[in-house]
């Protein structure tokens, strides 16, 4: 391995982390702005044009803040929890393809690793809840675990039918399949619905934000956190939202595929040629751009449909919904898909 390759191995993850951080900052602004407009408010509008610099101000504030550790807290666990949450949230991006030619850990069964690493975030929540040694976080942690038990299975089953249909564990293959045929949302409408619902639960967004429902648990598992640790927990949550939207885009909404992609690719190639970029790099950047735009459209829809208009679901009715509704439906979906895939094959 040359020095260059090692450098790339270090630089690329850092680049992804920087991208994620900037995107989280952007998302906090976007969320506040979108929700504010739905709720007849202005949202942030003092810092910079349209308040776009508000996240930076927030970040600055959080960095400056005193780091308070409750006297009775379990210090090791309390300090560890935000790191675990953040790592668990950021790790899955190793297995996410950002374009046809770029995936950090290019392995065949990427989806399995992706799901396994993303499920780790529940441990971060549990650690935060337990380490705080406080009652509201504890209740929030209990709810979070109950939630994990219910949404993971339908989520995986929904992805399973996609895998059966495409016949590959690789997300790149799945997107390629969609490029060649049709977006999977049209082939798997039921699966998409199941994925959407469990994905909301995974990102713990309204209506499934039970672990941190502020009307009864104050702030759930991050009640006791302040300063940068709080910021890390918040980061982890938003990264989760990005991950779920990205998965949704890749699995069901065609990834970087849009009508007229070939035309755009040729344009990108020619632009890249004039700039002296390689063919793969220019197409890769184009794919990345399309993907990111699509992901943000999905996030916007999530904010609009759920946070703006829905109430929080009743506590512990997510397990009921999941075990009685989503899992049987997801199984049915798997069976139908297998029969159809077998028939087609």
């Amino acid at each position: 391995m040359t020095l260059m390759e090692i450098l790339i191995l270090i630089i690329l993850p850092v680049l992804i982390l920087i991208f994620l951080s900037l995107d989280v900052l952007f998302l906090t602004w976007l969320e506040r702005k979108v929700i504010a407009r739905i709720q007849l408010r202005y949202g942030p509008n003092r810092t910079g044009p349209f308040g776009i610099l508000q996240p930076l101000a927030d970040a600055l504030k959080l960095i400056q803040k005193e780091d308070i550790i409750p006297r009775d807290a379990d210090r090791t666990i309390f300090n560890l929890a935000p790191i675990v949450s953040f790592v668990a949230a950021a790790l899955p991006f190793m297995f996410v393809p950002f374009s046809e030619y770029f995936q950090l850990a290019l392995i065949d069964n990427a989806i399995i690793f992706l799901l396994a690493t993303s499920a780790l975030s529940a441990i971060g929540i549990l650690l935060a809840a337990w380490g705080s040694n406080s009652k509201y976080p504890l209740l929030g942690g209990m709810r979070a675990i109950a939630q994990v038990l219910s949404y993971e299975i339908p989520l995986v089953l929904a992805i399973l039918s996609v895998i059966i249909l495409v016949g590959s564990f690789s997300l790149i293959d799945i997107v390629k399949y969609q490029e060649e045929n049709i977006w999977l949302i049209f082939l798997q409408p039921l699966g998409f619905l199941i994925f959407f619902i469990s994905g909301l639960a995974e990102a713990s967004r309204v209506p499934f934000d039970l672990p941190e429902s502020e009307s009864e648990l104050v702030a759930g598992f991050h009640t006791e956190y302040s300063g940068m640790k709080f910021a890390l927990l918040l980061f982890a949550e938003y990264i989760h939202l990005i991950l779920i939207s990205m998965l949704m885009t890749l699995l069901y909404l065609g990834g970087w595929d849009i009508p007229g992609l070939y035309y755009l690719e040729s344009v990108a190639k020619s632009i890249g040629y004039t700039l002296g970029l390689s063919e793969k790099l220019s197409i890769g950047l184009l794919h990345f751009l399309i993907l990111i735009i699509k992901v943000h459209i999905v996030i916007f829809l999530i904010l609009w449909i759920t946070r703006g208009t829905l109430f929080r679901i009743r506590v512990y009715s997510l397990p009921v919904l999941s075990w009685k509704g989503l899992i049987p439906l997801a199984m049915l979906n798997v069976i139908i898909t297998s029969i159809l895939a077998g028939g087609l094959g």
Binding site: V206, P207, D209, S213, T309, F311
Partner: peptide
């Protein structure tokens, strides 16, 4: 509305 998790309802009521 706010107590059952919808801040939008809160703003509409106040409007």
């Amino acid at each position: 509305g706010m107590d059952i998790g919808s801040f939008s309802a809160f703003m509409y009521g106040f409007r």
